[in-house]
């Protein structure tokens, strides 16, 4: 609504933008470009300025993200000494990946983290719907409370949850015992450890998902609801037939984001589970195994190969999601 208003007021500017959009590649028409920028000194200077302002981010991206990816790819074909220095070993690391039983179970665990992590989306959706309405009393307090875990350090979160999950003195089992259930040793029992980690994972991302979905809900034009109301749709029907379909782009984004996050689960496992835990084999993720191999066992080359395979998996899973989204995401 407000967006429309400003565009209407800035009428001339709006039409100038429209003329720009009409030329196929933005600045391809130099005459139009010069006229548009008015005070400028030609397209070349403007390109240089653009590069200049992009440089800090661009250089950072190159040095801290892209170059390490290239290096990691190279290192995945090498074997490392305990204090650096490496020799080229060809495909040896990838061959041993195939025969590593710990890796296949870690991939299975990671798959479970992804699936359980997706359960957080319906929860966030309900929260977004409830806390998305304006004017309710104390709504911003609850929004803040739900968002707090997102900005809390994962290590701190995990330490607090370690206390909550404690099988002898923890609050979770204490509450369960009030209703007559003898709770397990959540993080030390191989049957529950993975679920316990996943619950903390969901708890700490629900706030982020909620904010994204809330923005999505607020972006749905009021007119659809008015039309639905005229047709006699109640709140539930409105939610199912208007909100949900028009929210699918936001849900899709949250889903992609949540799956990539789950594929990279590490810090929670590192702090919650720990190395001398009988439940570790049943709960360690690929990244945990990567940490174990590259930094504890000093198999840097092997770790690099593992990281690279995980990167391919992330790309494949995300690609698959983008293919499948055509079937269920509606861009209103």
């Amino acid at each position: 609504m407000t967006e429309m208003a400003t565009r209407d007021v800035a009428g001339p500017a709006g039409s100038r933008n429209a003329s720009r959009a009409a030329s196929p590649k933005g600045g391809a028409a130099p005459a139009a470009g010069r006229r548009r920028r008015g005070r400028g000194r030609g397209p070349n200077t403007s390109a240089w300025w653009a590069l200049f302002f992009l440089a800090p981010t661009g250089i950072g991206l190159g040095v801290f993200y892209i170059w390490p990816v290239i290096q990691t790819f190279y290192y995945s074909f090498t074997s490392w000494g305990p204090f650096g220095g490496h020799t080229f070993t060809g495909l040896a690391n990838y061959r041993s990946l195939l025969h590593d039983p710990a890796l296949s179970s870690a991939f299975l665990n990671t798959l479970w983290y992804c699936l359980l992590g997706l359960l957080g989306i319906p929860v966030s959706l309900v929260l977004a719907q409830v806390l998305g309405r304006r004017g309710r009393k104390g709504v911003s307090v609850y929004r803040t409370l739900m968002f707090l875990p997102v900005i809390t350090m994962p290590a701190a979160v995990a330490i607090v949850w370690r206390w909550l999950y404690n099988g002898d003195y923890g609050l979770v089992d204490e509450l369960l015992s009030k209703v007559g259930i003898k709770g397990p040793y959540w993080i030390s029992d191989p049957h529950t450890a993975l679920i316990a980690v996943a619950i903390v994972g969901i708890w700490s991302t629900v706030g982020y998902n909620m904010v994204v979905l809330m923005a999505g809900i607020q972006g749905i034009p009021r007119t659809y609801y008015e039309a639905a109301e005229l047709d006699g749709a109640g709140p539930v029907r409105q939610f199912l037939s208007v909100t949900l379909p028009l929210l699918t782009p936001s849900i899709f984004f949250v889903m992609v984001y949540s799956v990539i996050g789950s594929l990279q689960t590490f810090d929670l496992i590192y702090v919650l589970i720990g190395p001398t835990n009988a439940a570790l084999p049943q709960s360690q993720s690929v990244i945990y195994l990567f940490y174990q191999d590259s930094f504890i066992n000093n198999n840097r080359g092997y770790g690099a190969a593992m990281a690279f395979v995980l990167m391919l998996v992330v790309i494949a899973v995300t690609g698959l999601q983008f293919r499948l989204q055509k079937r269920w995401v509606h861009y209103g």
């Binding site: 999950y165 404690n166 040793y185 993080i187 030390s188």
Partner: peptide, 9 residues
């Protein structure tokens, strides 16, 4: 105590 107990505390 069991290993699980000693792991928790």
């Amino acid at each position: 105590p069991s290993l699980a107990q000693m792991n928790d505390t």
